Amino acid sequence: MNSRFFDMLRRALPVVPLALCVSGQAKAAPAPSLCAPDEQVAFSCPIARSHKIVSLCLAPGKTTPPAARYVFGTASHPELIYPAEGRARANFRTSRLRYAGGTGGNAYSFVKDGTQYILFHISGAGLENAGVIVKPVNQIYASVELDCRPSTAFDALDGDLLLEITRSWGPDPELDGMALPVTKN
């Protein structure tokens, strides 16, 4: 899906907040990930038209807030690892995306060097889309949207369970209950 779809969806469907609920169990990861063997794969998918992968990895153990890493690139050449220093605390945020018509999803975001990175997964009403959006902080439009290969996005944990685990990160005020940013056409 391209950014035009999200722009159309944002205009056509009202955003409806959704209360968190806990359900589901951990699943085995069918998609490749860039997580370390001792980390829980929270989300991972190959990026369309490339050999790159994006992964959100949770550190082992039960710390609050949970320590996590964002990894983008290939196994032999990770281009961005956040946070760069091991499993240091980071400013991750977690948000629930909800649209009318049974469409919704999750977004996990962080800010690094004046740039916001948004990892997302949306599904429902015949739609399945996931990927990464990159945008300058305090800007309306995204500068980059990289979609996952169709049908490869993988939430290792049920989306609601993952939200429950990561809710101590706090919501992203620009995303929670809002539409995802789109690229300027």
Rank of each mutant, 00 (worst) to 15 (best):
A75Q: 12
T166P: 03
P17C: 04
V137G: 08
L80K: 11
E39Q: 13
F154H: 08
S123V: 08
A42W: 06
F110G: 05
R89W: 02
P37E: 10
C21S: 13
H77V: 09
R11N: 11
G24H: 05
H77I: 02
G114S: 13
K135D: 06
L9T: 01
L56Q: 09
P136A: 15
S44I: 01
S55C: 09
T183N: 00
G86I: 04
I165D: 02
A130H: 08
R4A: 05
Y70L: 09
P181H: 09
V41R: 06
V111E: 11
V71C: 04
E174C: 00
G61E: 14
L13R: 14
P46A: 01
R167V: 11
L9Y: 08
A28Q: 12
R11Q: 14
C148V: 04
E174I: 04
D160I: 06
F5P: 00
M178C: 02
D172A: 08
I81G: 02
K52A: 12
R10Y: 03
V182Q: 10
R167D: 12
G114E: 11
P65M: 03
A68F: 05
L162S: 14
D113F: 00
T63D: 14
C45H: 05
T183L: 02
P37Y: 08
S168V: 02
P17D: 05
R98M: 07
L157E: 13
T166I: 12
P60H: 13
L18K: 13
S23P: 01
H51G: 13
L146S: 10
E174D: 14
V54K: 11
F6W: 06
G101V: 09
N129Q: 12
T166Q: 12
Y108L: 14
F120P: 01
R4M: 03
E79I: 07
A42L: 11
A156N: 12
N129S: 15
L146W: 12
G177Y: 03
G101D: 08
A84W: 02
G105F: 09
V144D: 15
F110Y: 03
T166W: 07
N185T: 04
R4F: 05
A107H: 01
T64I: 15
E85L: 03
E85C: 01
R93I: 03
L34N: 07
P37I: 03
L161A: 15
T94N: 06
A28P: 04
K27M: 13
F92S: 04
D7G: 08
I118L: 10
P66E: 07
I47K: 04
L18C: 01
L34E: 08
